[in-house]
Every structure is written in structure tokens, then in C-alpha cells.
């Protein structure tokens, strides 16, 4: 399974993004300054935004899921139960899982942003998609929830996971690092000595057995 970006270019007024690269199975981290084009690249890789030029190819006809940076953009239900049902999931199980079981009839938009992100990510991760594109998945999560997400992501044994983020403290094991610099997606390769460790507390921990 691979995602191939073939000379992808996005031009907008005086702004541009150029991406040429192969995303193979494993976990990828894409970083870059504010406004560098991380979210735009996520949309392109999800097939939701057509680049100005270039093509994107998916080898192996994978299923794709994009988690947007702002969890509120995903909300379609007017209660937490409806929101879980809209993902085709069992509300009681999901809400128990994210510790919101005592608020099934609450409006999703009345949750704190961290709670909404936690609910959203639980629904996303239930889907078991081949390609998982996560735009700022750690934003608004508390430190325990960030750690929990790292553990969940590190248990994905197949498929392609791409994390677009500024996060530096909490990260799952990363197989390949990318950075958008001055409008160009750069392949930074495998960082020295890692790929099977969770970054946490500044110490390296071994990847849990799966």
C-alpha cells in the first residue's frame, strides 16, 4: 500500500505548496510552521481538494479517513448519541470508552473542546481505515489523553498513518519524518535510532507489544 504524490502543486495568490513523495505503510509525521500548508496537504491526500497540478495515486485501493484539525467541523448529530450513531457506532460503548457516558443527550457543541476531540478521535479510530490522516490530533487533548492516543496509534500494525502536527512532547513511534519548508514538502527520512519508541517525558520508551 502506498500514497504517491506526483509533482503536486497548489498555487493560491502569493502562496504555494509543492509536494513530491511516497508515503509507504507505517506512521508518518508532517510538521511545518503555521500556515505552511499542513491542513491543505491533508485535504489533498484525502482526495478532498484538487491540486493546481500534479496527481495523487493510491496503490492497493485503500479506505481513507481524514480527521480535521477542528473537531467541531465533523459534528452532525445534535446529541452525543446521534453523533455516535452517525459514525455507525454503538453509542453506549463509545461514550463509556471516552468517559462521557453520563451525558448521552448533551449537544456535542456544548462539550469542552478537549472532550469533543476525545469523542471525535474515538469514533475515527473505531473505523479501522487503511489510510488514517490526522490533522493536529493532539490539540486540546489533556496530557493523559495525548498519551492514550499515542498508545492507540502505536497499536496500528498495518496501513498508513499520517500525523500533521506541531506537537513535540507526545508522539507515537514515527517511521518517517516530513517537514514543509518554504512551500516544499521535504522528506527528512527516519530520525536516528527511533521508529519503535514513544516519545514521552523526554525519555524513550519501547513500543508496546501488539
Amino acid at each position: 500500500m502506498r500514497i504517491c504524490l506526483n509533482r503536486v502543486q497548489i498555487l493560491r495568490d502569493d502562496w504555494f505548496l509543492s509536494a513530491d513523495g511516497r508515503f509507504c505503510e507505517g506512521t508518518h509525521l508532517v510538521s511545518g510552521r503555521i500556515g505552511s500548508g499542513k491542513s491543505t496537504l491533508a485535504l489533498v491526500m484525502a482526495g478532498l481538494f484538487s491540486p493546481t497540478s500534479g496527481t495523487i495515486e493510491y496503490e492497493g485501493s485503500p479506505s481513507t479517513m481524514l480527521s480535521l484539525q477542528f473537531p467541531e467541523y465533523h459534528v452532525t448529530g445534535s446529541t452525543l448519541i446521534e453523533e455516535c450513531l452517525s459514525w455507525g457506532l454503538d453509542p453506549s460503548r463509545i461514550l463509556l470508552n471516552v468517559e462521557l457516558e453520563d451525558r448521552p443527550d448533551s449537544d456535542p457543541l456544548s462539550l469542552s473542546r478537549g472532550e469533543l476531540k476525545r469523542l471525535h478521535l474515538a469514533c475515527v479510530l473505531e473505523q479501522q481505515n487503511d489510510i488514517l490522516l490526522l490533522d493536529e490530533p493532539f490539540s486540546a487533548l489533556d496530557c493523559d489523553q495525548k498519551m492514550r492516543l499515542c498508545n492507540q496509534l502505536s497499536k496500528r500494525t498495518s496501513g498508513i498513518t499520517v500525523i500533521f502536527t506541531h506537537e513535540q512532547e507526545f508522539l507515537p513511534p514515527i517511521d518517517r519524518y516530513w517537514e514543509i519548508r518554504e512551500g516544499n514538502l521535504m522528506d527528512l527520512g527516519r530520525s536516528p535510532g527511533d521508529g519503535n519508541q514513544i516519545l514521552y517525558y523526554g525519555q524513550k520508551q519501547e513500543r508496546p507489544e501488539t
Partner: peptide, 11 residues
């Protein structure tokens, strides 16, 4: 309120 959750370290 959570002003830093979408900012990069430089910002």
C-alpha cells in the same frame, strides 16, 4: 482559553 493548542513553538 487554550490559545496554544494550534500554535507552533516559534509562534
Amino acid at each position: 482559553d487554550e490559545y496554544d493548542s494550534h500554535l507552533d513553538p516559534e509562534s
